[in-house]
């Protein structure tokens, strides 16, 4: 196992979520679930983050922000779409301002469905993301990323 998977730092961004999923992401950091036992830290700095957790369907106003955050993160990086809004647009899909899931703007590696996504499934998604992270790191070493 590489060191990246032992210390994944999370960047959480709210792309017009209803805040339901955000509360659940934060719930993962509480004593009950304690993400830090996996070495996970919730950071606010894209340059130091490994995983990008995005909640909510992306809209016209924040698609630039989402792109910029993604581009500022150093490789290897993984994007986890949390909540059904982030996966496909969810109930907001038909809204005039909504673009749809996060994958309309940046490539998504792991989809975590649910409305709101439960902390257990978010942790599951993050752990899935670690596998992707490991793969990307190997590719990076081979020079194919």
């Amino acid at each position: 196992m590489s060191y990246s998977t032992k210390s994944p730092w999370i960047l959480h961004y709210d792309a017009s979520s209803c805040n339901g999923c955000d509360i659940e992401v934060l719930a993962c950091l509480t004593p009950l679930y304690d993400l830090e036992r996996f070495g996970i830290i919730n950071t606010g700095d894209p340059k130091q983050a490994d995983l990008l957790l995005i909640t909510g369907a992306v809209n016209d106003q924040n698609k630039g922000v989402v792109k910029q955050l993604y581009e500022q993160m150093p490789e290897p990086k993984v994007v986890v779409a949390v909540g059904i809004c982030a996966c496909s647009g969810g109930v907001f899909r038909e809204c005039y301002n909504i673009l749809g899931g996060i994958d309309t703007v940046i490539p998504v590696d792991v989809y975590v469905p649910g409305c709101a996504a439960r902390p257990e499934s978010i942790i599951d998604g993050v752990v899935k993301g670690l596998e992707v992270l490991e793969n990307k790191l190997n590719k990076m070493r081979e020079g194919t990323l």
Binding site: Y3, S7, R37
Partner: peptide, 18 residues
Amino acid sequence: GPPIMQPYYDVRKFMEKE
């Protein structure tokens, strides 16, 4: 809490990053 060696893992991870 994280394992005792977590700061070491963190630093090794920083070295692996772009």
